[in-house]
């Protein structure tokens, strides 16, 4: 993968960052292709939300896109040793994921986008509202982790 292509980079930049960069490029390419093929903004929260409340004639591509996403991730987990290390781990309470999921669903819907819709598409197109949204969720995310570590305690 990218490491064989760029041995120089691999010796100067930690490989995990390069995998991040390569993965990011694929994410950007997938977003661009989905946008070009549908004429819609392929932010994941929006794509998912409009499957929950479908509009006639605007559901099929959303289902195909998300099934492709799930299959693409699954294939990468199975075929790439680096990716295989980074799945959701066991160990944290399911309640944490339920609370997190509720906030993420509620927040992205109210705020009109998530890391992909606002963070990549909107910000990538230079939209001010998306840049503000991205700065806000980054900031509250950082504060939340900080508070979590100070109260509930680090590590969990």
């Amino acid at each position: 993968m990218p490491l064989e292509v760029a041995p120089f980079l691999a010796t100067t930049i930690p490989p995990a960052w390069l995998y991040g960069l390569a993965g990011g490029c694929l994410i950007g390419l997938g977003s661009l292709l989905a946008l070009a093929a549908t004429g819609k903004v392929p932010g994941i929260s929006g794509v998912f939300a409009r499957i929950l409340r479908p509009l006639a004639g605007d559901v099929g591509w959303r289902v195909v896109f998300l099934l492709g996403l799930i299959a693409g991730a699954g294939l990468m987990f199975l075929s790439n040793a680096h990716a295989a290390q980074y799945r959701i781990p066991e160990g944290r309470s399911l309640a944490i994921y339920v609370i997190a999921g509720l906030l993420v669903g509620f927040g992205t819907r109210l705020g009109g986008g998530c890391t992909s819709g606002h963070g990549i598409c909107g910000s990538g197109a230079g939209a001010r509202d998306s840049m503000v949204a991205t700065a806000v969720f980054m900031a509250t995310g950082i504060l939340t982790v900080l508070l979590w570590n100070l109260t509930v305690g680090g590590g969990s």
Binding site: M1, Y19, G20, A22, G23, G24, C25, L26, I27, G28, L29, G30, S31, L33, A34, A37, P42, V64, F65, L66, L67, G68, L69, I70, A71, G72, A73, G74, L75, M76, F77, N80, H82, A83, Y86
Partner: peptide, 12 residues
């Protein structure tokens, strides 16, 4: 597009 997106997420 979905396959690329998902593969990229996992690789990242």
């Amino acid at each position: 597009a979905g396959l690329l997106f998902g593969a990229g997420l996992a690789l990242s």
